[in-house]
Design a protein around this nucleic acid. Structure first.
Length: 646
DNA sequence: AGAAAATGTCATAGC
DNA sequence: AAGCTATGACATTTT
């Protein structure tokens, strides 16, 4: 009977925790109420199969009992436990944590005697200490179809193992519960949990230290755990592979999903052995946490979560009360919308975009890009400022100031005086020298240094269209190296280079216009030269910026493509994980139901009953109301139809 | 010779 | 108001 009790208790507790983690209230009142007089409430007294199970108290609940290690159901169970631990190691799943579960087991008279007075006081204690979760428990009491509560355990956090409402079960299960605390995950999880969670958990640990006398039996249980967990690991190879193959830091987004939880959890689980320091601590601090952690606040939740098995959603309850805003494992795992949104983003279209951008970028001459990297001198350096630039050629062919300016000469040369211009004035000191290193001048086609040597050039050269000017090839080649504006300026006898005209400050430019007796045509030309020169630079900068923007967009596209691929992989893994977890939950439910007995002593038919966990963590067994539900639904539907018709 | 790329120029808007 | 910059559109030149 002890074994049976242990099986039942463990399974029910685990399922309760499990369901509570996902916000499912499981209330077995309807099933248990009044049926099991020999049953004893876990914490509060006889004839009560209802237990408010603290998560931490349920950890390794099998401990202390001689669970047959060959029990096949245990594989499923421990696999589920493992998954739950993995989720738990996420640290901050947010679920209501009040667990109100009826535990059906029989306690011997000696056990009752051990519990002694606590039995009668438990109710009071629980009621008094349960305040944080009263609301939740009240809710659970009003659950539809919930059975009559025989007893409810609401242990206090500050109570020792048997002091507060410690029933016979608690007494005799002390070792088991202590053993539960040996699980390293809670402490390990502290690193991942919120501050409140950690504090709560640590409080429980410190307040509920376990006598060292209970150590021996727990060692065997640890061995069981190790063995069984290893089995469970083999059952979920894909999950492990998921852990090993996934970069957690990259895979886990801010929207933590169940997959993320699994990844992290599995990772933590796998690393648990590496964290050898965590296990000794927990073993030393074997504690019995309060049997109930109530309230919906995150801080209240955390201890249970730290202990918690996992958020293993039933397929039918996947849309329950998970906190979507939080990074809960369930909320995340159920957040298919995340992936849906990804799909809705039309990321597939990025392929097209990327292709377009790639094509556009490929069409760009790398040399141009390279040239554009220079801020404003790209064109000057590539065409006119280079070794073979017109300027350089002009330098070699002419000693005029114009040549010097094109080549980056600093300042307007006195050679200007030699220019065949009318109204020439010495402008040498009229404005500061021009620093070509700061300017962009892209005269790659029109310069003609020999122009200075041919002052007889007629105005016919002022045309925008610049045809070959003479039959002198040498002169022609040199003239071509002058820009059109340079030619115009020289034609108009303007003693300034285009570069000077463009780069001189506006004040100085105005002074030049006003102080040198230029004709209106010359003034117009000067203004046009300046305007066109500045606009040329602006156009070059504009094109550079455009290319930079294209490059940046290309990089962005590549980054988003990589992100999309990563998310799609995560989605697939999550789906696979969800399927596996769902199967584990189903099996666990069948296992728990199979260990329950009706009033005639027969096991519950999993086809007729189901387990549900309420928002406050209460686990209840509810009969499957297939016909009734359909009937009632049909009636309601008919009524609605009638109302609509009316 | 023609296409494509690069560059220059104009018009315009905004600061 | 003038000057300057940015940019689209178009022209011109170069490759």
């Amino acid at each position: 009977m002890q074994i049976a009790k242990k099986y039942f208790t463990e399974g029910l507790i685990q399922l309760t925790i499990l369901l509570s983690l996902i916000g499912v209230r499981v209330d077995i009142d309807s099933y248990l109420s009044g049926y099991y007089t020999p049953l004893i409430e876990i914490n509060l007294g006889p004839s009560s199969a209802y237990i408010q199970t603290p998560f931490h108290n349920l950890r390794d609940t099998l401990d202390g009992y001689s669970v047959h290690p060959k029990c096949p159901e245990l594989d499923y169970f421990f696999a589920s436990r493992r998954l739950l631990d993995e989720v738990r190691t996420l640290g901050s799943p947010r679920f209501p944590t009040q667990l109100n579960a009826w535990l059906v087991h029989q306690v011997s008279a000696t056990d009752r005697a051990d519990c002694g007075p606590s039995t009668s006081n438990n109710t009071d204690t629980s009621s008094g200490l349960e305040s944080p979760g009263d609301g939740a428990r009240d809710d659970s009491e009003h659950l539809p179809d919930s059975g009559q509560e025989v007893c409810q355990t609401t242990p206090d956090l500050g109570h020792g193992p048997c002091s507060a409402g410690a029933c016979g079960f608690l007494k005799e299960e002390n070792d088991a519960k202590v053993k539960e605390e040996e699980e390293p995950a809670p402490l390990i999880q502290l690193a991942h949990s919120s501050t409140l969670e950690q504090e709560s958990l640590l409080d429980g640990i410190t307040a509920l230290s376990d006598p060292p006398s209970h150590q021996p039996p727990t060692i065997d249980i640890d061995q069981h755990w190790t063995n069984l967990l290893s089995l469970s690991v083999t059952d979920l190879d894909d999950l492990d592979s998921l852990v090993t193959d996934t970069d957690i830091t990259s895979a886990i987004s801010q929207d933590v999903s169940l997959h993320d939880a699994m990844v992290t959890g599995a990772g933590a689980f796998g690393v648990a052995s590496e964290r050898g320091e965590a296990r000794p601590v927990t073993q030393q601090q074997r504690t019995i946490f309060p049997l109930e952690s109530t309230g919906s606040s995150h801080s209240d939740v955390s201890p249970g979560m730290a202990l918690g098995l996992a958020a293993l959603p039933f397929a039918s309850v996947c849309n329950l009360t998970g906190n979507e805003s939080s990074h809960s494992a369930l909320g995340g795992c159920l957040d298919e919308a995340v992936f849906d949104q990804i799909n809705q983003l039309g990321l597939e279209g990025l392929d097209t975009i990327d292709t377009q951008l790639m094509g556009c970028l490929e069409s760009i001459n790398p040399q141009v890009l390279e040239d554009l990297d220079s801020d404003s001198g790209l064109s000057l350096e590539s065409s006119s400022g280079g070794p073979v630039s017109p300027g350089s050629s002009e330098m070699s062919s002419s000693s005029s100031s114009y040549c010097e300016d094109e080549c980056g000469a600093t300042g307007y040369s006195s050679d200007v005086d030699s220019l065949p211009s009318k109204g020439i004035v010495d402008y040498t000191t009229t404005w500061s020298p021009v620093d070509l290193s700061e300017s962009v001048w892209h005269d790659h086609s029109y310069p003609s240094p020999a122009f200075f040597n041919q002052p007889s050039v007629t105005l016919s050269h002022k045309g925008i269209k610049e045809e070959p000017l003479s039959d002198d090839d040498g002169t022609m080649s040199e003239e071509r190296e002058l820009s059109r504006d340079e030619l115009r300026a020289r034609t108009m006898c303007i003693p300034f280079s285009v570069l000077q005209i463009v780069n001189m400050p506006v004040e100085e430019f105005l002074e030049v216009l006003d102080g040198h007796g230029f004709s209106p045509e010359q003034v117009t030309l000067l203004r046009d030269i300046r305007r066109r020169g500045k606009n040329k630079l602006a156009a070059q900068n504009c094109r550079k910026r455009k290319l930079d923007a294209i490059t940046g967009l290309q990089e962005e596209v590549e980054r988003l493509q990589a992100q999309r691929d990563r998310l799609l992989r995560d989605k697939q893994l999550t789906a696979k994980t969800m399927g596996a977890v769902g199967q584990q939950i189903k099996q666990l439910t069948r296992d728990v139901l199979a260990r329950l007995r009706d009033e005639s002593g027969h096991p519950l038919n999993p086809e007729r009953f189901t387990l549900q966990c309420g928002a406050n963590g209460r686990v209840v067994v509810q009969p499957v109301r297939r016909p009734a539900v359909s009937t009632s639904t049909g009636n309601k539907t008919d009524k609605r139809k009638k109302e609509k018709k009316q």
